[in-house]
């Protein structure tokens, strides 16, 4: 970036660094994939290329996907992540617009923003018992809806912070024109402001979805049977027959791929999202 020509030695270091980095990041995924398509007896052999070194099999994928608990967990995880992300984005977008466009006095905008941010600072384990007791009272133990509610709560800071900055970056004149023309605040929000932040909205939704999918502590404490999502299935996989590398591979990929693929789609907004808006990616 700064200098045009990098000396050869520097370039070699750079290439080696990049290769190491890629190997380091990608190896676990490849290892999981490799094990998932190997026959049990082959998992300990140092073979790395399917078809050339060994004959791949989809047998483990088929048998894992045939297990009713796994299918149910995939369905539960889908409901939880879509539900929570949608709730968080709807609530968060409205709040974000309020923080960007209105002046609050008691408490002030800055304090309100900090308050929303603080949801991500609180250690979740503090909430384990309070939520357990609350959900028991609400008869929502072992229900996907309890996890929808909780994940919406804990991912709410993402839409609030990211979208309030996006609304602030929109030119005010557009909305002022609409208001002067007699539009209500709601009309100018829905017709003018909202359509302009759709890309950010989608990216935020994806980030919330991925986080809700990956959430483990509450999923573990609040579900027992019918509402169990993927992360709990994977952690509960028993080791009675020793570690079955091939099933580990399948389960790990089944659990990880949805959020990882979603993250690639939200790529442009990841940095902004994960720094809660402080750094533009």
């Amino acid at each position: 970036m700064r200098e045009k020509s990098i000396p050869i030695a520097g370039r070699v270091v750079l290439v080696i660094a990049i290769i190491c980095m890629l190997l380091w990041v990608l190896f676990p995924f490849y290892w999981a994939f490799l094990n998932s398509i190997k026959k049990p007896a082959e998992t300990f052999e140092p073979t790395w290329v399917p078809f050339l070194q060994f004959q791949p099999t989809l047998e483990h994928w088929r048998s894992e996907l045939a297990i009713p608990e796994t299918r149910r967990a995939l369905l539960n995880s889908t409901i939880i992540s879509i539900g929570a992300a949608t709730l968080a984005v709807v609530l968060g977008t409205l709040a974000a617009y309020a923080l960007a466009r209105f002046q609050f006095n008691r408490p002030q905008n800055g304090t309100l923003t900090t308050w929303f941010l603080s949801q991500r600072v609180l250690p979740p384990v503090v909430f384990v018992i309070p939520f357990f007791l609350l959900m028991r009272q609400l008869k929502l133990l072992d229900s996907v809806w309890s996890l929808v509610l909780l994940n919406a709560t804990f991912t709410l800071p993402f839409p609030v912070i990211i979208l309030s900055q996006m609304f602030r970056e929109l030119p005010k004149e557009l909305e002022e024109a609409a208001l002067v023309d007699g539009a209500t605040r709601f009309q100018s929000f829905f017709r003018v402001a909202l359509p302009l932040v759709v890309p950010g909205l989608v990216a935020t939704w994806i980030i919330c979805m991925a986080f809700s999918w990956n959430e483990f502590l509450f999923a573990l404490t609040l579900t027992s049977q019918s509402a169990i999502p993927m992360p709990v299935i994977i952690a509960g996989a028993e080791h009675t027959r020793g570690v079955q590398f091939w099933y580990v591979g399948v389960r790990v990929l089944l659990t990880m791929l949805p959020p990882v693929i979603l993250a690639l789609l939200a790529q442009r907004y990841i940095v902004r999202g994960l720094t809660l808006g402080a750094v533009k990616g």
Partner: peptide
């Protein structure tokens, strides 16, 4: 650098990998 965007995309993968799945995969690694 050529492929800068691809590089960044690859670097985001671990951030969204389910932590429990990573722990479980770790047992085998």
């Amino acid at each position: 650098i050529r492929g800068k965007n691809t590089l960044r995309a690859i670097m985001t993968l671990p951030l969204f990998a389910t932590p429990v799945a990573m722990g479980y995969l770790g047992i085998t690694m």
